[in-house]
Design a protein around this nucleic acid. Structure first.
Length: 275
DNA sequence: GCGACAG
DNA sequence: ATCTTGTCGC
């Protein structure tokens, strides 16, 4: 029988992961490196990517990794890749990248082989960038490994460096009047680790944007906001929707069990039309 | 014992 | 992450 639970990591594994994070962290660039980032309208930006993993209920190891590429500024899906994967690392706050990044790197490699012309100019990642225990979240990790500009977008605040969901924080959230309003997340260290963003008018709960790689916080926030039709920026939202739908249609056994039927365990498609 | 815990 | 349907509003 296949393992349905990931093994708890040994202390030695954690130390190794921390060393790896520290090593890769030296390569992070927290500044704009692309021309389009410097333009107030992002002229020259045509493709924005989004990545996400959805998990099969009741099974800690089977998931669907998805990478989508959307046109900008239209936000139409140009490319979609869904791949069933078996994760080996457990979820641990602070070490999310070791659970998800390997499959996202593979997805990026498949894109490069199949449709190099659709390579995204920036990638929105589900999770944090430098807003992290050791300043190296999943968005930084993926950014360094792919050398793509990456932005971290978290749905919940990771409470590091003194940041907390205290009354002060709640008050700042209440003060966000409309879509586009933000407030900085300044840690005890004095450093601004990210921005809380009211992503659109109808949502009261903000999203947390932080630098992943090859971008500054200001342009990262500006780009994320320009990608929001709903609370979650469209590239990540599409990756999420498609990975969940992929699981639903591929493992729809009545009792929630995993029944790998005879079918493709991967799809990728390119949407014709806009070029 | 209590709180924290990106996905 | 996932557990989960209908319901209120535009």
């Amino acid at each position: 029988m296949a393992r349905r639970e990931t093994e708890p990591p040994e202390q030695e594994t954690l130390r190794r992961w921390e060393r790896e994070q520290a090593q890769l962290k030296a390569n992070v660039i927290e500044e704009d490196t692309e021309e389009w980032q410097k333009d107030s309208t992002f002229a020259g930006l045509e493709r924005v990517g989004g990545v996400d993993l959805s998990y099969v209920k009741g099974n800690d190891t089977v998931a669907c990794a998805s990478l989508v590429v959307l046109s900008y500024p239209e936000l139409e899906v140009l490319y979609e890749d869904c791949q069933m994967v078996t994760v080996s690392a457990p979820y641990l706050a602070g070490y999310l990248a070791f659970r998800e990044v390997p499959f996202l790197v593979e997805a990026a490699q498949r894109l490069q082989e199949r449709e190099p012309g659709l390579r995204p100019q920036v990638l929105l990642v589900d999770g944090n960038g430098v807003l992290h225990h050791r300043g190296f979240g999943v968005a930084c990790h993926l950014g360094v490994l792919t050398d793509l500009p990456c932005i971290g977008v978290a749905k919940n605040l990771l409470q590091v460096d003194g940041l907390a969901k205290d009354e002060q924080h709640k008050g700042q959230i209440r003060d966000l009047q409309m879509g586009g309003d933000v407030f900085p997340l300044r840690g005890t260290s004095g450093r601004v680790l990210g921005m809380a963003l009211r992503s659109y008018n109808k949502s009261t709960k903000p999203i947390y944007v932080s630098v992943g790689h090859r971008t500054c916080l200001e342009s990262a926030v500006r780009l994320v906001q320009s990608c929001c039709r709903y609370r979650i920026p469209e590239p990540i939202r599409q990756a999420d929707i498609r990975s969940r739908e992929y699981i639903r249609t591929h493992l729809s056994s009545p009792l929630g069990g995993t029944s790998p039927g005879p079918g493709r365990d991967n799809i990728f498609s390119t949407v014709p039309g806009s070029s």
